[in-house]
């Protein structure tokens, strides 16, 4: 998979991540989250977004960084739906993972938009990182530190129970 032309970086739980900018629909500031009990562990809650309901995912739990803490939600990156992506001239390579439902991830801080030049290293072996390997596309080296490039398509796909050994059951 070629590296994306532009990526958006963001910080959560002290770690830097990046995602393909093509996937990003908008960023919500301090969204009001309605918690959902007995839901999938990666679900942080629901957000009312202009008449639609968005499922906000907890990035850490989704990729297996098992912090039990749930700090207040500061930012939420909203991803494009299939309809949104359909309007784009160029689509991200994993666009088929988008559906009709609105999905987003909650993060602490939004970083920058980086164009092209960044070098993408292959992801570290799963045994080292302890992360859900399939969600990670590679690693970017940046002055701020190592930045994990996420596979948004995979991230937004509900994993089968066997595929999330690291997810914490509440």
């Amino acid at each position: 998979m070629p590296p994306p032309a532009q990526v958006l970086t963001f910080l959560t739980q002290g770690r830097w991540y990046a995602c393909d900018l093509l996937w990003v629909r908008e960023i919500l500031r301090n969204p009001k989250i309605t918690p959902v009990d007995k839901a999938h562990p990666a679900v942080r809650g629901l957000v009312h977004l202009r008449g639609q309901i968005l499922t906000a995912l907890d990035l850490d739990r989704r990729i297996g960084h098992g912090s039990a803490a749930r700090p207040p939600v500061k930012r939420c990156i909203v991803f494009k739906t299939a309809t949104d992506l359909g309007r784009l001239a160029v689509q991200p390579p994993d666009a088929e993972a988008a559906g009709a439902d609105l999905l987003g991830i909650v993060v602490d801080e939004i970083g920058d938009i980086i164009s092209g030049s960044a070098q993408v290293l292959p992801p570290p072996p799963e045994t080292l990182s302890g992360l859900a390997h399939e969600c990670i596309a590679g690693v970017l080296t940046r002055p701020e530190g190592l930045t994990t490039l996420l596979n948004i398509g995979t991230l937004l796909t509900v994993p089968s129970p066997a595929a999330t050994p690291h997810a914490i059951q509440p």
Partner: peptide, 18 residues
């Protein structure tokens, strides 16, 4: 309103509303 994919198959909820 239908539930998003991460909440489908959940036995407690059949949908959401505003």
């Amino acid at each position: 309103k239908p539930l998003g994919r991460f909440l489908q198959g959940n036995s407690f909820y059949s949908g959401a509303t505003l």
